[in-house]
Write a protein that binds this DNA or RNA. Structure first.
Lengths: 148, 148
DNA sequence: TTACATGCAAAGCATTTGCAGATAA
DNA sequence: TTATCTGCAAATGCTTTGCATGTAA
């Protein structure tokens, strides 16, 4: 006999995120849990701070923009999400934890992932005093409507 | 017998840029000529709008920030330079007309070029309705001082 | 109990824009 | 002469911050 509805999955991305939050020392507050749930329970996403803000609203809850921004930054520092600066004044946050790069469709403001295995980067050797922080590959795409 | 000082080189990047400007229909105004000279006469550069603004000042001339920004945008549209969005609120403009990507040293706000031949991008096939606009690869590097 | 977090409104910052006066053709 | 350009100052848009209030442990 099994329960009809699974209400708790200790191995979900959401639960893993909560554990990371707890281990890191920052508090798993109500706001952080709500944001983590929205970010990680819906599969891979590429959200802006604004979208996330409205996702919270859709569930008849309210988290201030300041908190949304601060939390996104904290989650990025914890390695839970990845910030992708697609344009001046436009950052998207990505919940795909597998190594990958981004295909950015400018007209739609949307992003699609490119698995890392399709990219071969032969970077000039980096001096010992420097550390690799992050590699961003953004392939920008435009629909053909506008030929600028 | 040769002249001691070469005062005019019709094949310089600067002269080529002027021709592109003229052909495009926009006027080769004093400001645009000054900016083109600074951008293209000093070899490959990676400048911000602000640096360019101060470069003009150093020569005891004055071009308003608005014009610097507008001109950089026009030059980008003409393909004379390439805009690299290295961070939120930070664009650098690059005068290297050879195909290449960028190594970005965050702490110093500086950029180094990576020749394209060192990069092998196997991008998933792009639907016919889309056109490739631009590929940005930014390898972000930090000095070891700060281990965040 | 108290260190940490939230939310508001105000500030910050690079960039863009409106518009009156200036300038290239 | 006139369409285009410049420069100022104000506006913009995203993001960050200061600080009073709220809350998790």
């Amino acid at each position: 006999m099994t329960t009809a509805i699974k209400v708790y999955n200790p191995f979900s991305l959401y639960e893993k995120a909560l554990k990371t939050i707890e281990k890191s020392g920052i508090r798993p507050t109500k706001q952080r849990r709500i944001l983590a749930k929205i970010l990680f329970d819906k599969g891979n996403r590429h959200v802006s701070a604004e979208e996330l803000f409205y996702d919270v609203k859709k569930e008849d809850r309210k988290i201030s923009m300041a908190t949304v921004y601060n939390t996104l930054k904290q989650f990025t520092t914890l390695g839970l999400i990845k910030e992708v600066v697609v344009d001046q004044n436009k950052s998207l946050y990505c919940t795909n934890n597998k190594s990958h790069y981004h295909l950015y469709i400018e007209d739609e403001g949307k992003i699609v992932d490119i698995p890392t295995k399709n990219v071969n980067l032969d970077i000039p050797s980096i001096p010992a005093c420097l550390q690799l922080h992050n590699i961003d590959i953004i392939v920008r795409i435009r629909t053909l409507k506008d030929k600028n």
